[in-house]
Design a protein around this nucleic acid. Structure first.
Lengths: 153, 153
DNA sequence: TCTCTATCTAGGAATGATTCCTACATAGCA
DNA sequence: TGCTATGTAGGAATCATTCCTAGATAGAGA
């Protein structure tokens, strides 16, 4: 989703986040994609408009935006951290073949709870569901390739 | 759960995993705890009986055991990888304060599915639910401490 | 039980994501 | 508009994990 700079300014200030060109560009890059880019991918994208931007700024900014709740971090296995501009409650479908992450919005999944007997005194604030499998493309690719373990991730 | 070396031998061979003292010790260490230790914690534990063991062997062995399905890897946020000797289907309760991970066994959680409309052609093999919150200890600690963001992980 | 070989182990080096440090730049309050 | 707390760039540091390699060993087969 393309955002204009006024939108970004308003959102940032509402969360008490200082607005800089670099931050706006990073947030914009994240808002424009439904893939879940890594910090490095965002760095590469933003560098096209801001050739001087530092990788460090990208990391720092993602930390700021995450703490402000403007951005979400998604982690799959021990892979590199990925980021998601969609901060509504949602879940993920993860391809074990190509590591792509697809958003799943499903009200039923938002209602899950742990029985009191198993909660062990935890105060639960939220939950996240990850579905693991193979996307359509990787299923086709696997027809020719040898079987690999399901535990590979 | 304390396992004798015959049990371990049988399990390993059933999964075509070569048995060595180092591997048995690592697997034993994992079977004896319900916490979810990191590779380094396992290294420290095993080193007490095998002072010459290399950290590399721990990593390599955990990889072998994981591929064989004898061990599960659990990842929370972008934190260090943790391991779980419980390979039955189960889910996790994660403390945002102290990062402890507690197992949740709940048949209802094992039955989740994604609606066809959202599955986007994925063939789903499994799923995992993570509940995030604060354990009893951290709730008490927070009564005195200043509030921290829920997004911190 | 013995031999042989594929696989394991130890340990050091390499990798790569992320964080730390610091001097200069700037957003935005007053 | 000026001032100051905060952000940025960029280089160095950290640290989990992986790679590489020479010597050790599990276990299949004789």
């Amino acid at each position: 989703m393309r955002l204009n700079s006024q939108d970004i300014h308003t959102r940032f200030r509402r969360h008490a986040v200082r607005v800089t060109r670099q931050r706006a560009a990073i947030y914009q890059a994240l808002a424009e994609t439904t893939s879940h880019p890594t910090a490095n991918e965002l760095y590469q994208t933003v560098k096209r408009q801001h050739p001087m931007i530092s990788r460090n700024t990208v990391y720092y900014t993602l930390g700021v935006l995450r703490q402000a709740g403007l951005v979400q971090e998604v982690n799959v296995g021990h892979e590199v951290a990925r980021f998601d501009g969609n901060v509504t409650v949602h879940h993920h479908l993860i391809c074990l073949g190509c590591s792509q992450i697809v958003d799943v919005m499903d009200e039923a999944l938002n209602q899950l709870a742990v029985s009191d007997g198993q909660a062990r005194g935890f105060r639960i604030l939220g939950h996240r569901v990850e579905f693991h499998g193979y996307c359509a493309g990787c299923q086709r690719a696997k027809l020719d390739a040898p079987q690999r373990s399901r535990q590979e991730h």
